[in-house]
Nucleic acid binder design. Structure first.
Lengths: 117, 117
DNA sequence: TAAATATAAAACCATTTGGTTTCATTTCAA
DNA sequence: TTGAAATGAAACCAAATGGTTTTATATTTA
């Protein structure tokens, strides 16, 4: 499974691809149906779908002459996890505590110390 | 201010840039100090910092002959918000409830004509 | 069966990306 | 004060990106 050529961070970097994901969140759709929502060619959309598919964010099944694409949001958890590290910085209320408890309070208080051994 | 040329999704798409952010999460660092952690040139790192800076994820202040870069994680909230839409799909336990409460229960039930459960 | 629909695949293209090397400038330190 | 350190800036490069157009193939449908 899991084609690794395109990772999820790269897949969601493009705004068109993010819109495609949003469309598929409501409904599975054929390539042409997706294309109808954008000002670019069907071929371009097909390429975006291919990239999303390599990141395992969508999959396509053939149905007659159509190819129906479906959302698979699971790989987004990787982004969520990555992001969770930074939550300590913006939710100062409880996340600092959480961070301190989970890790060590050390790196919250050391300034810039020149060398990072 | 806020240069909009590079958005945050694009900024975090590159793994080197994600590592740079992680380094800066512990400490502010000069360009050379950052470079020491990577196999690529100082110039390449400087370009990555420029892109991160355009996304307002870092800022640099001159200190003598050094330029010290600092993390500004706030723009990551945009990613978090984008992602929150998809939480309804993976955490079915409480996120559906959360989604319903925060937004309206409307969009839970509107679109999905065909599939999905 | 013939025309229309839906997609696939390939060739092509301009721009962006992620690097490099080289040279200039500023600042620190011996 | 002279050299090393840190950065900036520019020129260059190969590969990837995000598009296009063209051609071919399979599937409906009139």
């Amino acid at each position: 499974m899991s084609a690794a050529k395109h990772d999820v961070f790269q897949a969601i970097a493009d705004p068109t691809r993010r819109e495609v994901l949003r469309l598929l969140a409501s409904n599975e759709l054929a390539i042409s149906e997706i294309t109808a929502h954008f000002p670019i060619s069907r071929t371009a959309i097909a390429k975006h779908l291919h990239i999303l598919s390599e990141a395992n964010l969508v999959s396509g099944k053939k149905a007659g002459r159509e190819k129906i694409y479906q959302l698979h949001p699971e790989p987004l958890t990787e982004v969520k996890q990555w992001l969770s590290y930074y939550e300590q910085f913006w939710d100062n209320k409880l996340s600092i505590l959480k961070h301190v408890v989970e890790n060590d309070n050390e790196d919250r208080f050391k300034g810039r110390k020149k060398d990072q051994e």
